[in-house]
Design a protein around this nucleic acid. Sequence first.
DNA 1: GCTGATTGACTACAGCCGTAATCGGTGCGA
DNA 2: TCGCACCGATTACGGCTGTAGTCAATCAGC
Lengths: 125, 125
Amino acid sequence: MADISEKISEAELVVMEALWEQSPQTATDVADRVAAARDWSVQTVKTLLSRLMAKDIIAADQDGRRFLYRPLVARDDYVAGESGRLVNRLFGGRISPLVAQLASQDQLTAEDIAELEDILKGLKS
Amino acid sequence: MADISEKISEAELVVMEALWEQSPQTATDVADRVAAARDWSVQTVKTLLSRLMAKDIIAADQDGRRFLYRPLVARDDYVAGESGRLVNRLFGGRISPLVAQLASQDQLTAEDIAELEDILKGLKS
DNA sequence: GCTGATTGACTACAGCCGTAATCGGTGCGA
DNA sequence: TCGCACCGATTACGGCTGTAGTCAATCAGC
């Protein structure tokens, strides 16, 4: 439940996803993996890695003359923080309006509904 | 269900909340209302109003020598967009992991759970 | 040993964001 | 009618973001 103090930007998040998927990785590995999603130069990815290091969101261990990067923040913690922030900002901290919102947009599949029921069942016990 | 093309920044959102709460309002009204949340100068609020106008997120009707500002985007539409974006970005478009996430943080009150059950009941019919 | 490829560090630069000061016009009270 | 208060418009400016180029060191192969 580590707090994420520094903000992760949109582009930085793409890099984080690559690192969460697999770590540690060299800058080049990350760049290759990211290339699937975004057409960025290797330099761009390296800059983003530097910024993430400066923000203490990732760390790097030297391996010969290059670095192996790894996340310091778990994806779950990040996701929890962002979800909570959104729910607070837009729904006054209440989640049911969010679900109602998404439901009204037909964003809930039958499977989602079944899973939600399971979750609720678990919570009541 | 109008699409929101331009992005609303954090500070702009505070101004939007004031306008969604009540509209139309003069710049001074908005500034007064916003003052409860943020200690901003009137100038700052006016700048934010200008930027929101430039982004076509609000409009203004002249009233004597001042303007009456009103939202062009409904809060529900904005909220729907943001919620969907978050769910897509972090949960691959699936909502149940979000609820599971918040549940695991003890962010669900008994009332939330009851409301969610009602929502689900409604959806199944 | 010299050369080319690779790597991290530093630099760049435009656009957006937060926060506000200043300017020029105008209506109102004295 | 003269000045002041108030209004929107314009300008400011430092920080963050997206996107990348360049530089200096270094490793690997000829």
